[in-house]
Amino acid sequence: MPDTTEAPRPMTRPAPQPAAQAPASASRPVRFRGGGFVAEPRRWAALLAFVIAIAAWEASGRLRLVSPLFLPPPSAILLALQGLVADGSLARNLAASLMRIGVGWTLGTAAGVLVGFAMGIWSIARAIGLPAVSALFPIPKIALLPLFILWLGIGEASKFATIGLGVFFPTVIATYSAVDGVPRNLIRMGQSFNMPWLDVLRKVVLPGAMPGILAGFRISASIALILVVSAEMIGADYGIGAFVLNAGNLMLTDQLLAGVLVLSLLGLAIGTALSLLEKTLLKWR
């Protein structure tokens, strides 16, 4: 192509063609061939799919294609839910479970963040902690329930322990990775300005690790929800988990799914709350 920018020969450029006039007849327009492979928001699609799925579900029950015992239709689940709201048992169950999730999660998370921080900062803690976490994390907490009962009894303590322990290990791993992932050059920067150790920790490491820690919260909150059912295997009179277990034992499938619905709504609420927290704490990202 002779007419690009070659500075030494400006005079050799041909006169510009009139813009409107098409060049030689053999030319053809350049076609757009990109596109696709881009994630674009399609909110209505998700909503529509959801509505269709629910409608098909309801219809299969109404038309007796599926026995309501096997798959209670949404209307039956809502009816069961309404019954729970009406007699106040939903509130009572929800309060019991939320208290357990709240206390268990808080204890497990606080301990997990502390241990994870220690492992991220001190080599000795890391050397001890990493193999210990690898060895203890995969233990199914449900298998330990009889031990928890022996150690802590059948009151709230063993329920807190079940949730707390389940939350602890993922939090340790998330926090440790997050602290480990704080750019070392930022820490060196702080040190090069004579920042005291605690200040480096407070002002550089902690905020730098915050995204990873919050991501860990998201996972541990879901785990807490899963484990509340396990925790309420231990002598619980009330609680969403106890309710679900009981409905399953009695083969009351509409009640069972109503309980499951409450659990997943709870998960949705906690997820939304965490998103809000992330939005405020991580504005800088």
Binding site: L145, P146, I149, I154, I234, G235, A236, A242, L245, N246
Partner: peptide, 19 residues
Amino acid sequence: MVPLQDVPKMVAAFKGGQV
């Protein structure tokens, strides 16, 4: 009645003096 889901947990609560 304290529901404990299975016999091993019942035994644990029993041995632990919880019931």
